[in-house]
Structure formats: C-alpha cells, structure tokens
Design a protein around this nucleic acid. Structure first.
Length: 989
RNA sequence: GCGGGGGUGCCGGAGUGGUCAAACGGGACGCGUUUAGGCCGCGUUGGCUUAGUGCCUACGAGGGUUCGAAUCCCUUCCCCCGCACCA
C-alpha cells in the first residue's frame, strides 16, 4: 500500500474519489466477510472464472472476462441468489520454470516485464531460488488487485494448483485414477516436433522460426538398385505417391549418404534422415542398424528400379535436393512437379555440375533418355485447351516464366498451384488410377506399394522449425505417452448431451462446442517436465496443465475447510472423494478405515465428511463459467468432457459464457507494442468502477472488447448528473426539515397527479429496468449499460431541465437507478446508497419493474417534442444564417379544423372534403389535393387540447434548450405560421 | 486446407424486409453559458437544396428476388480467430 500511494496518478478527482471509496468499502467488506458463502436454505448460484496463471500479474486483458464474471455474480446476488464466486490460481506446467530460466539467462525482456508488474531486484533474485516465490509474488498481486477492484469473491476458498496445495494434488490424483479406471486414459505413441538439444517437444511458442508448422506424413518408397554387385534400396520420400507412375529418374544431393539396414534390407539415406528415423522408432519397429557410408558419386548415373512400373530410372544429382528433408532422396516426376521438370531440363542442356564418376556427356545423354519418358498421368482441362501434348508442369513453369532451378520462390508457387489444380480438378488417365479422385488415387497407390512391401512412413515438419535454443527440430515419435481418449465415441456423445442441455452465451458458441467435441482426438495428458501433480499410476509423469484444470470447481466446494485447517491433506483419500462426490455411504466407512488417524479423530472426520457431502450437493453443479472464446477449443470443452466422465448428470455444468479478446485503444495487445497495461495501473489511474463499466460495456457476445480511455468521460459525466440530482434531493429535504415538512418518500407521490414529463420519466425508468434485467441475464452487458445507465440517465438529464422538479419522483428514480447499476459500478452505487438511506448494496435486490408506471402515450409524446425540437432548431439555424437576432419563437397550434380534417381524410373521399362547408375558408384546404395521399397515413396521437397541454408543459425545457423565449398561440394572429397537428407552425423573431 | 466469426458514417458499434442518411457511445468542429478553462446545454459532422423542405448517392464488390433490401438468394474479394501436447 505504501508504495502505491507514492505513484498516485489519478486521471482526475472523480477517479481519485472512486479509488478512495474502493479502499474504504473493500476493507469493510473483507472485515465483514460479506462474500464468504455458506450453505443455507436460499437457492444458490455457482459462478466461476478460470483460474489465472501465476506467471504474471493481472493486466487489462484479464480485466474483461473477470469483470464480466463479477458483474454477473453481483447481478445474481441482486436476484436473491446465494452466490458462490470463488477464485483459485494456476501454476502447473512450464511457464513459471520458464521465467526462472530466463532470469538466469539475464533476459532483459523478462526482467523488465517483472519490474513492470512491481517486482524489485530483491524479488527477482529470490525468484531464481524457487518457483514458489514467483507464485507467491503474483498471487499477492492478483488478490490485491481483485480486492481493490471490488470483486465479490469468496477468498476463503482460494488455492493454488500443484503440490503447493497438497489436498488439491490428492484431488487431481483421484480424478486421474477414476479416468484411468473408466478407460479414458490410454497409452500410445504420438509424433511431435522435437528439439534434439532440449530433448522436449517444441511447441509454437518455443520456436525461433516455424510458428504454425505441423507434422506431415511422407510416404517412403523403396527403389531397388545395384552398386558394385550389391543390392541396395533407395527410399524416396514423397507426399504424392500416386505420381510414381510417371517417374523418370531419382534425385540425390552431393553429400555422402549412410547405409542402414532396415528389416534386413540395405537402405541408402542421408545422415540427417538416419537420425530422424532413429527418433521415429525405426530401431524398435524395423530393427534398423547403421552399416556404413557411401560416396554419393558412386550413385550418380546408376539405375534404380521403380517398384510399380519396373522401369529403370537413372540417379542424378540436383541442387534442390535437401538432405535435411525426409530421406534426402527424391523421385523425379517432371510431368507433375515443376522442380523435377526444370532440374531435368537443365541436365539435359548440360548445365549439370555434379556428374559423379560419369562424364558430363554420359549424364547428358542419360538425361535426354529420361526426358523422353516424361508423360502426363493426370489431365487438366484448362491445359488441354491450350494444346494436346503440353506437360502439366511445363505449362506451370512457362506460366511463371521459370528459367532456372535457383528460382525457388516461383518454383514453390508453381508447385502449390499444380498440386491444387491436379488434386481438385485433375483426371487420372492411366489405367491403374482411372476415374479416381485425388485422395482416392493416393490411397490406391499406397495400397499397391504396401502389398509389394516397399512402402514405409516417415514424419517430417511442414517447414523448417528452429527451437529457441537455435537447434533445428524434427519429428519424433513419443513412446508410451499417456493420452486422454477424447476420441471415444461414447464419451463424445455424453459431452454433446451436456452441451445440448447447457445455457450458452452467446448462442453461436454452441456450434463451436459441438465442432470441438467432434474434432478432439487422443490428447496427451502427461509430461515429463514442469510443475504439477504426478500421474498416480506412473510417477515418472506429471499431469499436464490443461487436463488438471477441468473439474477443480468441485474442489472449491470444500476448499475452505482445508484452508481453515479443519482437515489435512493426509486425511483424505480416493474413497472419501467418492463419498463427497457420489454420496456412497460405503465409501465413507471404507475411506475412514484407511486413514491413519486416531479413532477420536475419525469420529470428527466422519462429521466433517458429512458436511462436505452436503456442501458439494448444495453448491454443485457450476451454474455459469465465464471465459474468453479462445478456451472453447480446449479448456472449456475439456471441462465438459471431464465432468460428464466423472459426475452424475445432475452435477454436469449448467452454463458457459464466452467473450472476445481485449484490444487496447483499438489495437491488439502485444508485448512488442507495449500496450499491455497492468490492471493495478488502470485501477490507480481511473478508479475501479470506471475501469469496470468502461471495459465491460465496451463489447458483448464474442466480439472483442476495447479498452479506450476516452470513453470513460461519458460515464463520469453521467455519474455527475446522478450526484447533482442527489444534491438537489438533499437540499430539498434539508429545506423541508427546516420547515418541519415531512420528508417525501417514493410512496408519497400520487402517480395520477404527476405531469407528463414525470410520467415519461417513470415510464422509461421502468422500461429500462426490464430491458436491463433481460440483458444482464444473458451477460450482454453492453446493452445492459445502454439501458440501465445511458438511457436512464439521459431521461433524467432531460427532466432536470424542468423548472419545477418533483423531489419524490426524483428520489424514487435515483434509488431505482442505483439498484439497477450496482453490478456495473459497485463502489459508486454503495456510496449513493448510503446517501439515499438504502441498504448496503450486497443486501439489495434488483428493482422490479412497475407496470402501473408505464405510460401508454410515452413514445408519442416523445415524438411530438422531438418534432418540435427539430423544427425549432432547423428554423433557428436558418434565421441565424441570415445573421438575424433570435429572441423569441412563437408556436402556432394548428387550427381546430385541421385536426378534424386529418380525421376526415381517413374516412372521407377527397371530393367530400373539398366541398365541405366546414373547411371552405381555410387556407390549408387548397393544398389538400396534393397532400391527400400523405395525410391518409398521417398519424395524430393527440387531440388539439392534449397537444396544447403537452407543449405547454415542455415550454420550460424548450426555452432552456434554445435559450429563447417561447410563446404558444392557439389562435390565428398576426404573422400566423401554418402548422399541422403534431407539428406546430413556428415564427422566429 | 479445415472449422468458426465478420466487412455499416471520422472511430467503436446498433440495425437483420419498409418507420434508415442509419440507435447509442466517443472524436472533431461551431454556437451558447463562463473572467477563463473544465463541466454543462444546443447544433453540424455523404452531396446538393430549403424558414422547419425536397432530391441524389450510400451499408466490401457484382448480380438476382421484391412494389420496396444494409437486411433474403447467388457469385466474388477482403479481414479476424482456432487447428493440439501449448498455457
């Protein structure tokens, strides 16, 4: 607190006031334990927000979702629910260890970030000693920030994952043993992008280069060859095995190759390939062994046999062959691969530099021979149009004007294009593949090759991937990996059922959940490094981060007892968890028996476990989980999966609300832009309520929110209006007290005797209550704010322009407005509540809309006044443009007959009206024929008398708005300006 | 590539068949209030026109359905997000 005081940087007095209120009330609420929720008779509402990761302090990005959760919690409290809103913290996994690593390496970025969040040099030194210090540091920051910001969190139930909370680890172990028993956890192998130096999978965020690259499966096909009388195999690697029907030659690089043994055959592969195959279990699966090395020169100009066509293909060198890609041996299909086409053409033209043990002429001759073999096996309509015998690749090479094998960019482009065209639109014209589509041709070819036992698989990255440690990565197949079996159809079906029954805001998100459930496959659920709980049935492994954060909400229901030391982690076991969550009495006895405690304690514990069971039954399921949309594809869906796997249907989650991301001043947040504002800075500068309402109302549904400082003024200005109104009320009641007049309450205004302005004020108040509630319910807080705050206060603003103000009405209006806006600005509303003698905000309810205050002509009255205002301002502008003084406006109410006329138009013909005696002398009758059609649809809401009365009443507001004297004339006088019903004539003087 | 969501005024964003030149919020500008600033009030913010009016052009682009489309259908271009062992 001390250091905070020093950097008082409030944007203005109002922000400062708000912060001071926050300090006062948050302390008071904490002391009174206002938000500590206990089981009671009242209906409950359990709302959660995903626990934040403790590798940083909260920033503006966290503010949005978490404020949404809190606004909803406040709202449900106003709706008389016993709201449970707990908050834990997350520390499982690598990131915290990552911080330590980076500090050790003196990473400036990291150190600056830590300092930005308030860490001192001392702190940073300590962080290196143990992750515990980092966790403690950030947890403190988080709790401080959330408390001052007015979050209505039950802190008695907080905890941090990992073995920092041993009882939680026990809970995770229970979960995993259960899933294992149910067959939802299985062992298997899995290819990952791997850093050989770090000896760990290299995720997107760990990459220096190659973000977004994934694992790709190459087909490896054996071409038989004979060198020095010995049989060897050249394993070519390809993504398009179906083109094997049109090979002309093979490509190798100019580096020496390794000779390896695979399933008893001698393969020739690049050195890099050998290492990769080793990591892809070739030793285990195919008994791979390294035999020796072979000079690439020996291979050039030799022949190898295509296993399908049995044709002999020459082996050539080409520059484009990368020994670090797949096997380092490539089959050449010049008809369908631009690289092959250009490379072969170059050799044919004698541009080849590496001829091995052969002469240049020999190689050139061989190339000529190979070139003759080029033939299309896939036909493309658009190329056929150009001419019969055009080779597809040739066409694309010409299209891009590719001259040499060096033009990599163009070649890549051409390769992509031809592949796309052939895959989607190509027709196979060879016997074996006739009539097949792209994917089918691939499959069929693979099948043939498989039968011939010349087909293998190899994994490669889709592009170069370089680890942060600057090592190049490749694909490794992880063995004995633990997986969650999200592929299980029954499990999927259950998850879908849960989604079906769930309340989801916004509704569009539901489809995304279904898609995710369908798409999820085996998911690795354990890793070897990082913080976390050990996998109970295989202690080498640690339960992976995302899968240990799926059902922890259940732990909240009992966490307080562990926090209060009523029970220790040793005093719980699987059977007892079973009892808490399933209520099996048998399990209670069984679990207690297993505990290594005294009998006396067992009796106490039995009592306690009964309480746990009751608490769990009372609070579960989760009623609403509020989170950002990026978690749909992972966490939130896992949350559903694990619940349906482990809990009874009545305890499945009931609601999920997702929201967008947060932009700052219209820009994406990013470290490089430096626009990640720490939460505490925001609160300090603007005051918690203004931060809250400003960000929560900036967006809704899945749209991205925006943090903009400018918009805060809109809230402040309107709060000022409320303040001023309260001041008016206070002054009036002082006056009354001095005069011994009894103070007015909202009950003592007589609705029937209120004037139109007041009725309208009340009408909109009641309407906004209703609309506010409707939107609160759906977490559409932007719309909520629109009604409960802007619209409501704008109405008030208009009313305040009146000369005479009904204090009782104002009092009622203010009280109801306060109640509507508690979730959006709790501290301010608490302050106003005190001033208005209302209860504390946490004891209040959402104001019920009073039907009897709805005023049927409200819309019409508003329209009438708006029309007059618009006409007045238009006319005044026009007069002013002529540089004339504007002092007075006279409004002429249309003649009485005009009102009759409008009625007549609806029922009578034009002729009848024109000839009517009644309108004979009236000037407006001359215009009637032209306007007849229009007038037929003209809607007059009021009688002449009503209209006069309304305008009379609004005279003061009009005078104030235009700073002009207004006179209302109901008779035709000098300078008469003709108007219409609902649209008086105007004379400006 | 697959899946999801979008393209509206100076900006953010309402609007999903007529009441739309487009709510609401913000910005800019002008006027009023004020010693001044802030706040507040009024107004302007596609073009032309006008004592409170009328017209034209507009809701990514093109085409269609309709008496009538920002809103429905088709085509097309563009943007954002996710695609896994990473939290």
């Amino acid at each position: 607190m001390e250091e905070k005081k020093q950097k008082e940087i409030f944007s203005d007095e109002m922000s400062k006031q708000n912060y001071i209120l926050a300090e006062e009330y948050s302390k008071e609420w904490e002391e009174k334990k206002v938000f500590e929720t206990k089981r009671k008779e009242q209906k409950k509402y359990f709302i959660t927000f995903p626990f934040p990761y403790l590798n940083g302090a909260p920033h503006v990005g966290h503010a949005y979702s978490s404020f949404r959760a809190d606004v909803y919690a406040w709202y449900k409290r106003l709706k008389e629910y016993n709201v449970l809103f707990p908050q834990g913290f997350h520390a499982t996994g690598e990131p915290i260890l990552g911080i330590i690593e980076r500090i050790k390496k003196n990473d400036e970025n990291q150190i600056n970030t830590l300092k930005k969040f308030g860490a001192t040099e001392e702190d940073i030194k300590k962080f290196v000693e143990s992750p515990k210090y980092i966790v403690e540091f950030f947890r403190k920051k988080w709790i401080e920030a959330l408390k001052i910001a007015g979050y209505s969190i039950d802190w008695s139930r907080t905890f941090t994952t990992t073995d920092l909370t041993p009882s939680f680890s026990k809970f995770i172990e229970w979960q995993y043993r259960k899933l294992y028993e149910k067959g939802y956890i299985v062992k298997g192998t899995h290819p990952v992008i791997w850093c050989p130096k770090c000896k760990s999978p290299t995720g997107d965020h760990d990459r220096l280069k190659g973000e977004g690259e994934t694992v790709q499966e190459y087909k490896v096909i054996l071409f038989k060859t004979n060198i020095d009388g010995e049989e060897y195999y050249l394993p070519i690697a390809t993504l398009r095995p179906e083109t094997i029907f049109a090979t002309t030659n093979l490509w190798i690089s100019n580096k020496n190759y390794k000779i390896i043994e695979v399933e008893g055959k001698k393969w020739i592969v690049s050195e890099e390939a050998y290492k990769k195959l080793k990591d892809q279990l070739y030793e285990q699966k195919y008994n791979m062994k390294l035999l020796g090395e072979i000079d690439y020169k020996k291979l050039i100009g030799e022949k190898a046999e295509n296993p399908i066509t049995k044709e002999e293909n020459y082996i050539f060198y080409s520059k484009f062959v990368d020994t670090d890609n797949a096997t380092g041996i490539v089959m050449s299909v010049p008809s369908h691969a631009p690289y092959d086409y250009v490379a072969l053409k170059e050799i044919k033209e004698g541009k080849n530099t590496e001829t091995g043990n052969k002469s240049k002429e020999e190689i050139q001759k061989m190339a000529e021979e190979a070139f003759k073999k080029i033939k299309n096996i896939i036909e493309l309509e658009e190329i056929k149009k150009e001419g019969e015998n055009i080779i597809n690749a040739e066409y694309y090479v010409k299209k891009h004007n590719i001259k040499s094998i060096e033009e990599k960019e163009l070649l890549d482009k051409a390769t992509k294009e031809i592949y796309k065209a052939e895959f989607h639109k190509g027709k196979y014209i060879i016997e074996e593949l006739k009539g097949l589509k792209g994917e089918e041709a691939k499959e069929k070819t693979s099948k043939i090759l498989e039968e011939k036992k010349v087909l293998y698989k190899m994994y490669e990255t889709t592009g170069k991937v370089i680890c942060r440690c600057t090592t190049e990565c490749h694909v490794k197949i992880l063995e004995d990996q633990w997986f969650l079996k999200y592929s299980d159809p029954e499990w999927k079906a259950k998850a879908k059922k849960a989604v079906e029954k769930m309340t989801i805001h916004p509704e569009e998100a539901r489809q995304q959940f279904y898609n995710t459930i369908d798409w999820l496959d085996l998911k690795a659920c354990a890793r070897k490094s990082g913080l976390g709980t050990k996998l109970p049935f295989d202690k080498e492994w640690i339960v992976e981060t995302l899968s240990d954060s799926t059902i922890y909400m259940a732990y909240y229901t009992i966490a307080n007892y562990f926090n209060e030391n009523k029970i220790k982690a040793e005093e719980i076991n699987d059977a007892l968890f079973d009892y808490i969550f399933y209520g099996e009495t048998k399990k209670l006895e069984e679990g207690l028996k297993k505990l290594n405690v005294e009998e006396k304690r067992k009796t106490e514990l039995k009592e306690l476990y009964n309480t746990f069971r009751k608490d769990f039954e009372y609070f579960y399921p989760v009623d609403m989980r509020v989170s950002a949309k990026d978690l749909i594809q992972n966490h939130l869906t896992f949350f559903i999966f694990h619940h349906v796997a482990l809990f009874e249907e009545k305890h499945w989650p009931k609601g999920i609300a997702v929201n967008g991301y947060v932009n700052v001043e219209g820009e994406k947040m990013s470290k490089s832009k430096g626009n990640i504002i720490p939460f505490s800075d925001l609160i300090q500068k603007h005051g918690p309520d203004y931060v809250r309402i400003n960000i929560v109302s900036s967006s809704e549904d899945m749209n991205d929110a925006n943090w903009s400082e400018k918009t805060i003024s809109g809230f402040k200005n309107r709060i000022k209006i409320l303040e001023e109104t309260i001041k008016i009320i206070e002054e009036k009641s002082k006056e009354k007290k001095q005069n011994n007049v009894e103070e007015g309450t909202e009950e003592n205004f007589d609705y029937e005797n209120l004037n139109v302005k007041e009725k309208i004020l009340l009408h909109y108040l009641e309407k906004n209550k209703l609309l506010g509630e409707e939107n609160y319910e759906k977490l559409k807080f932007r719309t909520t704010t629109f009604y409960t705050f802007f619209e409501t206060i704008n109405e008030l603003k208009e009313y305040l322009k009146s000369k005479e103000k009904n204090i009782s009405v104002l009092k009622y209006f203010i009280k109801e407005t306060i109640r509507m806006n508690i979730p959006l600005m709790p501290y301010t509303m608490q302050y106003f509540s005190k001033k208005m003698n209302l209860k504390n905000i946490y004891e209040q309810t959402y104001p019920k809309a009073k039907k009897e205050y709805s005023y049927e002509k409200a819309e019409e009255t508003k329209k009438l006044i708006e029309t007059i205002k618009k006409d007045l301002s238009n006319t005044i502008q026009l007069v002013k443009r002529k540089n004339l003084d504007v002092k007075k406006a006279t409004l002429f109410i249309a003649e009485k007959e005009y009102y009759d006329l409008i009625k007549d138009v609806k029922t009578k013909t034009l002729k009848e009206i024109m000839t009517s005696e009644k309108y004979k002398d009236k000037s407006f009758i001359k215009k009637l024929p032209k306007q007849y059609g229009k007038l037929k649809n003209y809607n007059v809401a009021f009688t002449r008398e009503e209209e006069i009365k309304i305008i009379e009443e609004y005279k003061d507001i009009l005078e104030k708005d235009y700073n002009i004297q207004i006179e209302l004339k109901t008779e035709k006088t000098e300078n008469y300006k003709e108007g219409m019903p609902g649209k008086p004539g105007i004379l400006i003087e």
